[in-house]
Design a protein around this nucleic acid. Structure first.
Lengths: 142, 142
DNA sequence: AACGATATTGAGAATTATTCGCGACAGCCG
DNA sequence: CGGCTGTCGCGAATAATTCTCAATATCGTT
């Protein structure tokens, strides 16, 4: 439970909503959850936590580097536990299944590109979209 | 004006809103424009085109591959003329200035990564964020 | 050049995702 | 255990985008 320490280190009080939200992520099969999804899961387990609070907590946990935020190509943000190791995503256009990957070559080139423009690279977002093996097969027939 | 032909090829009628929206992009200094920005520019030149129409036209022109859509990390979409050559973006976190680049190595690795997961790559989105030379200098002092 | 089937538009209401404002309440330092 | 303050829940407020529908414009056909 050193997560409670992480909260304190971020200057956040250890409150029920924050603990519960982290629990939801720890016990979720799906890695990426939207605010609405987190809210529903909390409601399902009788935790009476408002949607506005969920949004606030997600933002705070992201600022505390405990969660990572992604918007992919859609109109809503999803969060995932930040377990230290950075990674990018490969997303199936049909079923939404996502794979995580980290390609050192790509990472390296990004830095090179930024430097070639005189920029100090701070962050980046890379998402690959395609069809997963299963969906590709389904599409092949129709 | 082969753009009018492009419209027809996409099964779209050649209408004033569509022509005007394309004009806005062709004559804009800033490459990336949001729906709201396009709407205001049209209003400024007395073209009485509704915001809903702007949204519809942008979507259609994107489907016709005449515009490319990007969401970057923010809550709203921006569009730019699609001039055939694909590119990714490098964006300044301070002033919003954007640079376009295309790195063959990165493109190649993306395909390799997707294939290693058995995915058929269809699209991707890569945005690098950092500080441009000017803003980096400003930040250095304070 | 007018006709009419059909695609398109404008205006505002409706949705969706997220944030704000504020009175009530709960952590936490002493 | 007693506040000082950070937090919470709720509903209203925003922001971005889409939908509804009656009015209108486009374009292939006369």
């Amino acid at each position: 439970m050193h997560e409670l320490e992480d909260l304190k280190d971020a200057g956040l009080k250890v409150t029920l909503p924050r603990i519960k939200v982290l629990e939801v992520f720890r016990s979720a099969k799906t890695r990426h959850l939207s605010a609405e999804e987190v809210y529903h899961r909390l409601a399902a387990q009788q935790a009476d936590i408002g949607l506005a609070t969920v949004y606030r907590v997600l933002t705070q946990l992201e600022e505390a580097s405990m969660l990572a935020r992604n918007t992919f190509n859609a109109g809503k943000a999803v969060y995932e536990l930040n377990e230290g190791k950075h990674h990018d995503h490969l997303i199936c256009l049909d079923c939404g299944r996502t794979e995580e990957f980290n390609d050192p070559t790509i990472e390296k080139r990004q830095k090179v590109v930024a430097e070639s423009f005189g920029y100090a690279l701070r962050d980046h977002q890379l998402a690959l979209y395609g069809y997963c093996p299963d969906c590709a097969a389904k599409r092949a027939k129709g």
